[in-house]
Structures are given as C-alpha cells and as structure tokens.
Amino acid sequence: MTKIGLQTIKLDSAPYILETSSIVGPKEAEGPLAKYFDQCLEDEFWGEKTWEKAESKIIKENVSALVAKSGIASTDIDYCFAGDLLNQCISSSFGLRETNIPFFGIFGACSTFAEGMCLGSTFVDSHAASNVICATSSHFCSAEKQFRFPLELGNQRPQSAQWTVTGSGAVILSNNNLGKPCPRITYVTPGKIVDMGVKDANNMGAAMAPAALDTLITHLKDTGRKPSYYDVIITGDLGYVGKEILTELAETKGYNIKNNYDDCGVLIFDKEKQDTHSGGSGCGCIATVFSGYFYQMLKEKKINKLLLIATGALMNSTSSQQGESIPGIAHAVAIENLDN
C-alpha cells in the first residue's frame, strides 16, 4: 500500500470484490434497473411499524443475504463498515447489532458507500483483515421525515429536488477470490470537503458537483490516467442537474468525460414515467446501482475498468435552518478486472 500523488492510495494487493447484494424498495423496482437487484420489496414498511425499523431491516437482511451468497462463514468476516443517513446512523447500528461482526459506523452522507470501500480495501490491503463488509442503506420515507417534511404534507417538490432511494447495497472485499474471477480495487482517492456556497437543500446535485470534480481531477492527476482510461466513470447521486454541471466543469478544466460518464441517480429511475425530477439520491443510490447493475457488468466483462465516485452533502436540517451552505465530499474507488 503506497500513497501516490496528493491524495491517492495505490493498493498493491488489489483486494477482490468477492460478492455484492442489493435490496430495493417498490419504486426502484419499477425503474429501468429493476432486474439487476437481488430483491425488490413490495411495500416500504416491509412488515415493520416505522420507517426507521423498515430501513434497519433492509440493511440487516441485505447483509445476511450477502454473507449467504458469498460462501464465506460470517465468523470469517473480520470487520464491517456501514452507515446511513439517519441521525447517529441508527439504521446500520440497529440493523447490524445481531451480526456479531466488529462494526465501524461511518458517516459521509451519500458518499458513505465509497468511504466504506476506501477504508475496507485499505484494511484488506494492509493485512489487517481478510474479509470485510461495506454496506449502506437509505429509505425515502425516513429521509423525508428527518430532512424535509411529513409525507402527507401537500407541497410541490422543486424541479431540482432528488428522490431518496429506498434500498441497501453491500459488498464483501477480500484478499481471496475463492477461485472465481472477481473485479479488484486498484486505487482509492479519498476526497476533500469542497463548499462552493450552494445553500439550496433542494439542489444537492449542484452542491456536490464541485467535490466530485475535485476528486475526479485529483485521482486522474495522481494516477497519471486520462478519463478515457476508464470504460465507465460513475458518480453517486448528482442527478440530472449535477451530472450536467460536472460534465461541463470537467470540460473547462480540460477533461472530456462526455462519452463514458454517467450518474447512478440518473440511471436508477425513469425521469418521465416516475416523476422523480432530478433523479435519485441517498446512501442507497450508488450502493444498490453498483451492487446490482455495475457489479454484474464487471463480472460479465462488459465493463473492465470502472471509476466509482460517491458524492455526499455534509449537512443536516439544523445547518440548513441556520442558513449554512452545503459542504460536498466525494471519494473515488478504481475498480478493474485484472485477470483476463
């Protein structure tokens, strides 16, 4: 493990992404990526009494499904890195309290999935762990309740607003591929906090796009790669507004990502049919889209080199009320098929 350039870590052993699992809610199940998810729920409560309990159940069941799928005994999982959007990360800690796996609760807003992968892969690369789980979840209803308004309030969502994804995505990172060809993590670039002064909590894409740009450019400079090196560059939840901003800003800095860049918030919903305005968001957005769709593309070698950049808006409802601007963050993870 070596630090290269300003912020990037080169992972010499290139840990394997051994297995992934995803569970999504009913609305995501109506979206264009439905067939790639492991499990689709029929209602948002999933038999629970509250939204918070439902979200905990989603991450709990997803991690159980992941362990079962992987063929590794849960006692062989060394650490778990998980987080979500609710205050003090209660979905993850309540959901995973019975797993008996040493637990790191992490918060990076919607960037948590990549934050977990950065930490998990360096743990595996440094031999501190053999197998780690990285998981995140989000739930539309619990997020609306905490950050915005009650669901029954008859208000109109602005056009730039995004729709929090209900779902959970989880991966196992391992130093052993169990004989299967698996995509591997070669570099991680933890990002800086970037705040360009956007205050509108209904325009998260615009608030986070500068952070994504900063991490993208730093990653490319540190590794000496060009954007075209990657088959696909994906961001977490910039949505339609943020995607356009990132593409244009990158161009002004001399990086052309028009042809191989997409955003998970754009991919997960059908904008016209599902009326989600600027697209999906939340910890669960990139987690489910990567664990479901992109992991399968990597396994099938339709994609061989992928740069995953998860973006987060580091604010809460108090900071918004107090008129603070929204600091953004983005972490990048380079995922490649090495054994061809």
Partner: peptide
C-alpha cells in the same frame, strides 16, 4: 465555456443550470 473558479461565478452558473418550475401551468 470559461472556467469557473469563485463561489460567485459558480452560484450564478448553478442558477442558470437549475431547471425552472413550470410556473404558468402551476399558476
């Protein structure tokens, strides 16, 4: 497009990029 470096430039750019509500229909 020219490079955007200051917060002010960025906020003006965001304003111009953000979609407007269909105000006539809403009214």
């Amino acid at each position: 497009m020219k490079s955007i470096d200051t917060k002010k430039e960025y906020l003006d750019y965001v304003d111009q990029k953000s979609p407007n509500s269909p105000i006539l229909k809403n009214c």
